[in-house]
Every structure is written in structure tokens, then in C-alpha cells.
Amino acid sequence: MNLNGCNRLEEVRHALSQGHWPQACAELQAHVQTCARCAEEILVTKHLQGLRGTSIAAAQPGSASLLWWKAQARRRNAMLQQMERPLLAGQLVALAIVLTIVAGIVMSYSRGVWTSSAATTSNAWNWLLDAWGLLPVLAAAGVVVLLAAVILYLVLPVRYRDQHHPQNG
């Protein structure tokens, strides 16, 4: 199997690409009659270029501006997704803080049920104030509210715009 083929192949390719075939010189035509590799090259190239011509004539490409805006929308969505990633992390942190606080309250309260006199009172809030003091509770609540507000501020307008202007993404 000779992959390199004929040493006149480049000449044949050049004639084909320049549209000089079959008007190429008689000597090259005579060579092609005797060279299977060059004949194969011409046969396949002519056939495929014929198909290319008919396909190009039949093609009905759509609107370029539609594709342009589609790409803009996709890029914008990608940027928004990139931006929303830290927001998701913020939401997870807020959730973790809330869960930690709730778990702390539950654990402290249940311990108090068994060990302290707080078990006798029906007012859990008063017991909580006695056990923890007001300051840490308020600080934790403040952090949660602040994070929730920031997340709402950033996320809600984006979703609102996406719903009302779908052509922009």
C-alpha cells in the first residue's frame, strides 16, 4: 500500500483546485489514464466538488441576527450562572448558620429539661434568655436576616428580568 501515491499528484490537485481539469495539458491527461492513484483523486474530487456545488446552491441559511442574539443570550446566561454560584454558596452558609443555631437551641433546651429548673417552666423563650443571654441570640438572628436580605436583593431582580425579557436570556 503506497500512501504517498504518484509524484504528479500535486500537479493533478493543483489543476483540480484551479478548475483547469479536464482542460489540463494533454500530457497530464495521458498520465491520468495510466495512473490509478491520480485517476482516483480526480474521480473523488470531482464528485465531491459537484455535491458541494449543489449543496451550496440548495442551502437556505437562516437569519444571522437571530444567531447573534441567541449567542448573546447564552453568554449572558453563562455569566449569570457564574455570578449566581457565590450566591448559592451564601445561601448554603446561611442555611448552615440557621441549622447550627436551631441545633444549639434544641440541645441546650433538652439538656435543660433534664438538668435545670428550666424544665419546670413552660416558657421556652424565657428559659432561652436565661440560659444564653439576649446578645448572642440577637446577633445570630441579625446575621441570618442580613444574609437573607442580600440574597433576595441579588437573586429576585435577575429572575424577574429573565421572566419578562426572554429574548435577552
Binding site: L51, R52, S55, I56, A59, P61, A64, S65, L67, W68
Partner: peptide
């Protein structure tokens, strides 16, 4: 520019 590029290349790509 994109529209011009699209005009020049889309038919070949479709083929």
C-alpha cells in the same frame, strides 16, 4: 461583521 462572515461561510458549513 458576524453577518458578513455568516454570509460567506454558512452555505459551505451547511453543505
Amino acid at each position: 461583521q458576524f453577518a458578513a462572515f455568516y454570509e460567506r461561510s454558512s452555505r459551505q458549513l451547511w453543505a
